[in-house]
């Protein structure tokens, strides 16, 4: 019954970079000169010294026309308007909640920028203010959209759509925000039988797919019925697959997750996290993704 697996550590090479397709990124370290050409504009992650454009973070250089930015590959989340995020309530304040979104400052969710139960858009009364803890309390998880970014980098969220709101039963996985690929939609009902929300902030929520979307609940009632075992198996497998992909630094999006899930099917769920199995299924996933691209 009891399984105890112990091993000697092995120096592992990261799965060889996909490379070879000419999209090699220009990587810099802080202090590296990016360009001496004065025609460029200074973006995030750079500074100008003696007419040279110098990187201030370690990461990949990105150019948009004349604007040069360096994007750090491992950093906390930098909010951008329109991003989908998953966050955890840390504090209930007057008319707003503080939300932890892996951003450098706590994000805020204003009482006025959410749909109240019932889904209707009505005036916020004093009662609503008093009942804030009934809607969301410390520790609760929400999905939301970035409404605006303040000048100090703090993020303001809104949940003014039925697809956002409080999250019920499921599993949260935290990865580096740069591993989440930007896509049209970050809500996916995967064909394997579970749903994921890929938050741009690197918070990934895996939850059982609900058959009927209860519209009028507005996402404030949580289903406390036990999740059936079959759903749990899918969710656990997905979780381990996402952890495996993130460990091997593969971009996360619906196809990569699904391919990884399929590659993992020959292994037991708990074995996926063993280093050699992780390597094997991630390699297989990558191969399929490359084949897809042709």
């Amino acid at each position: 019954m009891a399984a105890v697996a112990m091993r000697l550590p092995v120096a592992r090479k990261a799965v060889a970079p996909s490379g070879s397709r000419g999209d090699e990124k220009h990587l810099v370290a802080p202090g590296d000169t990016i360009t001496t050409d004065t025609g460029y504009m200074r973006g995030h992650g750079t500074y100008v010294d003696e007419e040279k454009l110098i990187a201030s973070v370690a990461g990949a250089v990105e150019r948009v026309n004349k604007l040069v930015c360096v994007k750090a590959l491992k950093t906390r989340y930098n909010g951008e308007v329109g991003d989908i995020v998953v966050g955890r309530i840390t504090e209930v304040q007057q008319k707003r909640w503080k939300v932890e979104t892996n951003s450098r400052l706590d994000s805020v969710l204003l009482l006025s920028s959410m749909n109240l139960p019932g889904g209707e858009l009505r005036r916020r009364s004093a009662e609503d203010e008093l009942a804030m803890r009934d809607y969301l309390q410390e520790g609760d998880l929400i999905s939301a959209e970035v409404q605006s970014v303040f000048s100090d980098g703090a993020v303001s969220l809104h949940t003014r759509s039925l697809k956002y709101g409080k999250l019920g039963q499921g599993v949260l996985v935290q990865v580096s925000p740069s591993l989440v690929k930007r896509q049209k939609t970050h809500f996916h009902d995967l064909p394997c039988g579970a749903s994921v929300i890929l938050g741009n902030n690197g918070f990934i929520w895996i939850y059982p797919t609900t058959e009927q979307k209860d519209e009028e609940a507005g996402g404030f009632t949580t289903n406390l019925e036990p999740v059936p075992l079959s759903d749990r198996e899918v969710i656990s497998r997905l979780r381990n697959c996402i952890v495996a992909l993130a460990t091997q630094k593969l971009m996360l999006f619906d196809t990569s997750i699904l391919y990884c899930y399929e590659a993992s099917l020959s292994h037991q769920i708990k074995d996926i996290l063993k280093p050699e199995v992780m390597e094997e299924i991630v390699l297989e996933t990558r191969q399929r993704l490359l084949d897809l691209e042709g």
């Binding site: 019954m1 009891a2 399984a3 105890v4 697996a5 955890r88 520790g139 609760d140 998880l141 999250l167 019920g168 039963q169 499921g170 599993v171 949260l172 949580t222 406390l224 036990p226 999740v227 075992l229 749990r232 198996e233 656990s236 497998r237 979780r239 381990n240 037991q268 769920i269 708990k270 996926i272 996290l273």
Partner: peptide, 26 residues
């Protein structure tokens, strides 16, 4: 959150933990 805890507790009851382990697995 309460719902996350509930999910974990139910999972332990069914001998399938969040990372796929059984109750007596390391």
């Amino acid at each position: 959150s309460e719902a996350e805890k509930l999910y974990i507790v139910h999972g332990v009851q069914e001998d399938l933990r969040v990372d796929g382990r059984g109750c007596e697995d390391y």
